[in-house]
Amino acid sequence: MSDSPVRTEGLSKVFYDASRGEVNAVDAVDLDCSRGEILGLLGANGAGKTTTLRMLSTILRPTSGHAWLMGHEVRAQPERVRAELGFYSASTALYPKITPRETLRFFAQVNGYPPKSVEARVEELIDRFRIGDYADARVEKLSSGMKQKVSIARTVAHDPPVLIFDEPTVALDVLNAIELRKIISDLRSDGKAILFSTHVMSEAEQLCDRIAIIHHGRILAVETLDGLREATGLHYLEDIFVHYAGVKDADAAAEANISSEGAGASPPGAAPRGDRKEREGSSK
């Protein structure tokens, strides 16, 4: 297990809130993802998916716990971690004034691809993602489908072993979403370790080798779809999800009752922790 490309141990992120004190956005998460595997993070909005993936990509610093990408720890060697990583999310955008070819060259360069091989790599990517027709038009002039392909190509520009897709299909139409899932599936065949977050059940069912159900910042189960079915006796992922999330809520309620005599208890009528909105991307 220790040689997994991605591994986390007790990974936690605490946000401080003035009136409610500490909020555990991500709470002691243990995960791992192997080569040629797609690990799906399935959870509602605000469950902690984006926060987890942002810690793995070194945008956010974990409050406690560890995460390793290709053996590099996210806090100790953030630059090494990022060199092994391609990060894609619905909110990450492209530079509008440059062309796809320049975009790919730029990201190969900043990610430390060997300078002599950059041009060959750019051609290879243009070929593979079939963006040759518009490789020299400015990005701002492209359609959203074209931009999506360029975005994926730039994510893998430096051929990283680990890929993170944070809710990549959230703003896409059906056809583009299908195309994207196909590309991600192809990347798995290349032997990449892929983390994929979504709140769409069918997407997780189709694409993911294993599914991690995340709720209120905690991982409730990590299993293959069949494994989850076996464990719960339920068939549909949606039912399975509700099963876990419901159990978790009951636990949380019980805990709250027990601790309500303490100073930090939630006041009656206050919204439960998960009601808050997930931190949104920087695109707004």
Binding site: S57, T58, I59, R82, L85, F87, S89, S91, T92, A93, L94, Y95, P96, F107, V110, R154, G281, S282, S283
Partner: peptide, 9 residues
């Protein structure tokens, strides 16, 4: 524009 996250990752 949302390109900063891309650059910082």
């Amino acid at each position: 524009r949302g390109t900063l996250t891309t650059l910082l990752t």
